[in-house]
């Protein structure tokens, strides 16, 4: 196969810039950025309130959790934007019009992905700018690891974006895509939060314990063990923790995992769209 066939080419870049133009002209992305930064601000403000109450605070990186959660908000909403755009294009027929021309599923989805990744990158840079200003404002310790965390957050956005695009293709119609999307976000987050909550509630634990709560926790734990390797949120959380603990190799493995997940999900989405076609299966 020639490189020309593998690379999405000029059409993808045109679609990417088209996505960029449409997105930055709307107010939606700015509301998303505001929501993400607001999440970060609330968490950082909580830390300063703790400091005022406790009079002293020992922290490795007070910006880590705010940035991570801002990234989760960004991932969800950018994923939703992308998913809705593709589902609406399929629904409305504008996608079919593109496919009459030189565009194919590979180029279209690559273009959309690149477009939204660009938006994700710009959003991550906005978070970086916000973080640096917050550092100066509150006199927080500057930390080079912040860049590493933001790289992981960007890769999390990419991986979740790829998942969102696959959801849009599988859903077909905008209504189905929203339902699948909400379900995916709910499952990914609820298992992650549920497992950690129950782990905190039930200290220790024996492998042979068979009471009801332990069983629920075992189920959650087992699902979470799988999700640890699949959920972009979970992988990024682990990567951020590894970065914080200085486990650089594991941090890099987490990032590689996110890149691999992005590529695999994108390939699935492209193959599915190519197989299904813009008019759907009859």
């Amino acid at each position: 196969m020639s490189s020309k066939k593998i690379l999405p080419g000029r059409e993808a870049s045109v679609i990417a810039s088209h996505i960029g133009q449409l997105t930055w002209r709307g107010i939606g992305i700015f509301i998303i950025l505001f929501s993400a930064l607001l999440t970060g601000a609330v968490l950082l403000n909580n830390s300063t309130r703790f400091l005022e109450k406790n009079l002293v605070l020992v922290d490795k990186e007070p910006l880590f959790l705010p940035i991570y959660l801002s990234g989760v908000v960004l991932s969800i909403f950018i994923g939703l934007l992308a998913s809705m755009r593709v589902a609406r294009e399929l629904d409305k027929g504008t996608l079919e019009l593109l496919f009459y021309g030189p565009v194919e599923s590979r180029q279209y989805l690559s273009g959309v992905a690149i477009g939204y990744m660009g938006i994700g990158l710009a959003s991550v840079l906005v978070i970086l700018f916000w973080a640096k200003l917050s550092e100066m404002l509150l006199n927080l310790a500057p930390d080079a690891k912040l860049f590493g965390l933001l790289l992981s957050v960007f890769l999390m956005i990419c991986a979740f974006l790829a998942l969102s695009l696959l959801i849009a293709i599988l859903g077909g119609k905008a209504r189905n895509a929203i339902a699948y999307f909400v379900l995916a976000v709910f499952l990914l987050l609820s298992f992650q939060i549920g497992d950690s909550l129950l782990s905190t509630l039930l200290l220790g634990g024996s492998a042979t314990a068979t009471d009801a709560l332990s069983l629920v926790r075992k189920i959650l734990y087992s699902v979470n063990e799988v999700l640890r390797w699949l959920s972009p949120f979970q992988i990024t959380f682990e990567a951020a923790q590894n970065l914080n603990h200085g486990a650089i190799t594991k941090y890099l493995i987490g990032n590689i995992l996110l890149i691999a997940e992005t590529l695999i999900l994108m390939t699935f989405a492209i193959l599915r769209l190519a197989g299904k076609g813009v008019r759907g299966e009859r």
Partner: peptide, 15 residues
């Protein structure tokens, strides 16, 4: 670090 906690409302302005 001596943190300027009084400035934390500005975080919302930044956001």
């Amino acid at each position: 670090r001596c943190t300027q906690t009084s400035r934390s409302p500005w975080l919302y302005v930044l956001s």
